[in-house]
Simulated scan of single mutants.
Amino acid sequence: MKGNSSLITGIILVGGKSRRMGTDKAFLKIEGISLFERVLQVMEENFTSVLLIGNCRERYFRYNLPVIPDQYSGSALGGLYTGLKSSSTELVFVAPCDMPFPSSQLIRLICSMSDGFDVVVPRTRNGLEPLFAVYRKTCLEPMRRFLEKGHYRIYDFYSEVAVRYLEEEEMAWAVDEGRSLINLNTPRELITLKEKELCL
């Protein structure tokens, strides 16, 4: 996606509290590499500009990337709004900091669908993946209205914009049997994942 890398900003949400994990999950390691660094690697492969969005934490400063505090703290929608508003490009691709196997192929596929749409979001049998998706600046105003009303579920504002749902069969080749959309929230999920990886 080198030709489009300067037209889309990569956004990594780093503001989660990791309450269910009990520790900062962004720096948990799989095969010696932290979840955050795994996400960062694929984002830097695909985008010229990458922003970190979340209340500033010193441990991110060493990556020499902009770390921008949430304008509406306490929700992923607030982080997404902050990243979209802060970007210098019309489009952003957002990812959370807790994905062990993010896929460059899937990122490129999602971004390739953005013409004529405000949102491009994967949809699987497990539901929508609004935190591994493309957003256009036209989303800012409906996002702001929902945030001001205290509605923080990301896809609630989708009814007010043009959304391209990327269906499971369209992206089957890019998701590596579902691994590409995994994120980790609890210690049990981390243990289960490591056990599965040892069996591969």
Rank of each mutant, 00 (worst) to 15 (best):
I8G: 11
P100S: 04
E197G: 03
L52E: 12
E37V: 03
K149M: 12
P187D: 13
L80R: 00
Y63G: 01
G116T: 03
V134K: 10
G178Y: 00
V42N: 02
E90T: 01
L140F: 05
S75L: 00
I107H: 02
A174H: 03
R153M: 12
I191N: 08
P187S: 09
A174Q: 05
R125H: 07
T192N: 12
L65N: 04
P66W: 03
L77I: 04
I182A: 02
R188Y: 09
G16D: 12
C97K: 05
I12H: 05
R136N: 15
P66G: 09
P122C: 08
L84W: 06
E170L: 03
L28W: 07
G54S: 14
L106T: 01
E168K: 02
T23K: 11
I11P: 05
L51C: 09
S112T: 07
P66F: 09
R164L: 07
I8E: 07
E37C: 11
T89H: 02
I182D: 04
K2R: 10
D24Y: 10
E45Q: 15
M1P: 06
T89C: 05
C111D: 02
L166Y: 08
N4R: 10
P142R: 06
G178A: 01
V119E: 00
E195Q: 13
H151W: 06
R179L: 10
F146Y: 15
L140W: 01
L166F: 08
Y155E: 15
L200E: 11
D176Q: 11
G178V: 00
S6D: 13
I53T: 14
G79W: 05
D70K: 04
P122H: 04
R19N: 15
L181T: 12
F146R: 13
G32V: 09
R108V: 00
V94E: 11
I107N: 03
S87Y: 00
I107G: 01
S34M: 07
M113P: 01
E58W: 06
R145G: 08
E129S: 10
Y135G: 01
L7P: 03
G83K: 00
T9Q: 00
S88F: 07
E177S: 14
F27Y: 10
C199R: 13
P102E: 04
